[in-house]
């Protein structure tokens, strides 16, 4: 346990700079987005009201008040989020391969640590989780800051203030990243971690068997996917909708846990017996 925590900390320190860069990019791009969107709304208002002699009321009737949703739906806001998702997705692979590739042969040291090699697996998956939740938490912190910027720029009568909750619930794409309930948060990110564990297992297969391992990894991923969707498949096509939705959900959770356990066990086996530097 102690060694696991030390490894988690060590792994996090390795990614800290890249991680803060992601946070920085997100913050800067989104703040710029707030300014750009607010300005364009205001300049439109100015144009309509002063140049086209539209009354304020009339303008609000036609164009509506500005809400944070306009910003949140813009590429300035969603772009950095997509970039961060891509970054974490890329890092799922990099977190393993950088220990092998190039001048970096840190994997020697990792494998020779006097601790169970599964701790390497656990510490890496924990880091993916920390990064992901770190980004989510950071987003939750900067949204109020961005709202404040908008508040400063857009006068009261042109502005409709919304809560973070309201924004998240009106944007399904944001609702996946920041689900509205804790149950969903656990289920969504649990499913995410399940996928990461499957990918890790596939990566370790590749690291153990090289070319053959790539095929083994692909096959393992496909089998895992089939196992995971099998309850839904059976329910729909064989059992004629036998299960109630809640039963199907529980069944899926059980399947997910089985696949997760299998991935961890297999990764442990590969790290112990089959891995090659």
């Amino acid at each position: 346990m102690k060694n696991y925590l030390k490894l988690v900390n060590f792994e996090f320190n390795r990614i800290a700079i890249l991680f803060s860069a992601l946070l920085g990019i997100t913050f800067v791009a989104q703040i710029v987005g707030v300014i750009v969107q607010s300005r364009s709304y205001l300049s439109m208002a100015n144009e309509k009201i002063y140049d086209e002699m539209m009354s304020k009321a009339q303008f609000l009737e036609i164009f509506g008040q500005m809400s944070f949703l306009q910003i949140a739906r813009s590429v300035w806001f969603m772009g950095p989020i997509a970039f961060c998702i891509a970054g974490v997705g890329f890092y799922i692979f990099l977190i393993w391969y950088r220990d092998w590739i190039g001048k970096n042969t840190f994997i020697y040291r990792l494998l020779m640590l006097p601790t169970t090699r599964l701790n390497i697996f656990y510490s890496k998956i924990t880091n993916i989780l920390i990064m992901t939740f770190g980004l989510v938490a950071f987003q939750l912190i900067i949204i109020p800051i961005e709202m404040l910027v908008m508040k400063v720029m857009v006068p009261n009568e042109f502005r409709r203030d919304m809560g973070v909750n309201e924004i998240v619930s009106s944007m399904p794409e944001l609702g996946i990243i920041i689900p509205t309930s804790i149950v969903e948060l656990i289920l969504y990110y649990g499913a995410g971690m399940l996928v990461v564990s499957i990918l890790f297992t596939a990566i370790l297969m590749e690291r153990s068997y090289r070319w053959k391992g790539i095929f083994a990894g692909l096959i393992y991923s496909a089998v895992a996917a089939v196992v995971l969707i099998s309850p839904v498949f059976l329910h729909e096509f064989v059992l004629n909708g036998f299960f109630y939705p809640i039963e199907l959900l529980i069944l899926e959770i059980v399947m997910g846990l089985i696949v997760l356990a299998l991935s961890v066990w297999l990764s442990g086996f590969l790290l112990k017996n089959k891995i090659t530097v």
């Binding site: 390795r14 001048k103 970096n104 042969t105 020779m112 640590l113 006097p114």
Partner: peptide, 19 residues
């Protein structure tokens, strides 16, 4: 096993630490 690594060490011809 994992405890063996407190008893034996390996000095490869590559660096085992992060550059």
């Amino acid at each position: 096993d994992k405890t063996t690594f407190e008893k034996i060490t390996f000095i490869p011809d590559v660096i085992t630490m992060l550059p």
